[in-house]
Nucleic acid binder design. Structure first.
Lengths: 242, 242
DNA sequence: GTGATTGGCACCTAGGTGGAAACG
DNA sequence: GACGTTTCCACCTAGGTGCCAATC
């Protein structure tokens, strides 16, 4: 059941919302979730996924997500711990991410879990791509809004049904601070598979140790050209580690 | 302007439609366009792209595409020519491909060309993926429908505005018959770049001539294992062509 | 035997990862 | 200096190509 933040008044008492990948979120939450933000925009991991019940199957709904500051502090990772370093930077006007299926019928939203994997976070205050703008080293709480409306223009603010799951809050960073968070991301995000230690000692780190620092490993093309130096580059000795 | 098929009565005389990539379509049309159909579904190339004018910017429209049999014949490619071999197979009930932006406002559809690149063709009569089912070796004419409606359920058949561009018709095939069509696809479809002759004599065909027929060219991984046989496989002599 | 179809594959496009070094 | 940010890159996922051999 939804561990929804209590301060939101839910207009439609019939709607039930459930965080799908709660276990994964809780693994991160127990350590202190961090989300990378970049100029060009970065996805969240874990992805926010939820299932819905109690919508009117024939009515139309728009689903949105936003990120609200969790407190008024700026943080810093010091001695393996997050500590407050001062007052928060001014929060940019909070953008709304509209789920791309919107608008859709209640039956559409209920027939399978809804994923917000395409949502992207940025630290670029001038972003033109519609990504959600955050301040680095600040805490944020994701919220989902379920709004019965035929289109964006007829949405009424007083018809928002807003939910938040406490275990999804995070600190925005430009580089991971806590190594345990990095490792959880590598272990569970399929796009980071290249950084997994595969157990046979052939980890990416081993490869990097064998690289000259200026060696650019292009995929070797099939070459009959004797001047092709691809294989020579691979035989280089390991550089002295700095 | 639209060389629309004459037999469709257009309810809304204000709507103007233009085939965007007409030159490319005409290159194929001059030779005899073929489209591959597969069990899992294959995209069309060229992609059907059009620009629209004369819609009500504030009204909602649904855009659809379907493929209708061009005649009642089954064809065969014989002596570098398409010839009729008999009567057509029964046509499956024609599925409609709904453009994924639907429903959207007139201004949305008009602000940039509309692409149907995600439409897929299949020869699987039992297809469950919503792809358009065609018979191989039959001729088809793509048609686009512009329908003012708020959603799929309130669409009225008498409000369809249907257009067809003669140069987009094609023969469905399971393997290309005309070599010139294959070459045009390779030259213009970015996903087929691997088959282009890059001008330096290093074409994919050269590589294939150097392959033993059972050689599976994995991307060489960085291997310190002396038993790795990747490079040996490449030194095989050219097989006698069958 | 002939002709059409299928499945596997190398080779692409397109784009999401964290690492490392450079930058501020 | 210390620390936060940026950029580039190898390495992935995901999936669209025509070719080829096998199959029907």
């Amino acid at each position: 059941m939804a561990s929804a933040a209590g301060r939101e008044q839910n207009r439609d008492k019939n709607i039930k919302i459930n965080l799908e990948n709660k276990e994964l979120w809780q693994k991160f939450h127990a350590i202190g979730t961090e989300m990378i933000i970049t100029k060009s925009g970065r996805r969240m991991f874990p992805t926010f996924k939820c299932s819905l019940e109690g919508l009117d199957p024939h009515a139309k709904y728009i689903l949105l997500m936003d990120l609200v500051p969790l407190d008024d502090c700026r943080y810093k990772y010091h001695n393996s711990e997050w500590v407050v370093t001062g007052k928060a930077e001014p929060h940019m006007p909070g953008r709304l991410y509209i789920h791309p299926d919107s608008p859709a019928s209640g039956s559409h939203w209920m027939k399978q879990p809804v994923s917000f994997h395409k949502l992207k976070l940025t630290n670029n205050n001038l972003d033109q791509n519609g990504h959600i703008i955050l301040n680095s080293m600040h805490k944020y709480q994701p919220r989902i809004h379920v709004v019965q409306a035929n289109d964006i223009f007829t949405m009424r603010w007083n018809s928002f049904n807003t939910y938040a799951f406490e275990e999804t809050h995070f600190i925005a960073v430009t580089a991971y601070q806590n190594e345990q968070i990095t490792q959880l991301k590598i272990d569970h995000n399929p796009f980071a598979k290249g950084f997994r230690d595969n157990g046979m000692g052939r980890s990416r780190v081993d490869v990097l140790h064998c690289r000259d620092h200026r060696l650019h490993m292009k995929r070797p093309s099939i070459s009959m050209d004797p001047s092709d130096k691809t294989s020579h580059d691979l035989s280089g000795t390991a550089p002295t580690s700095k």
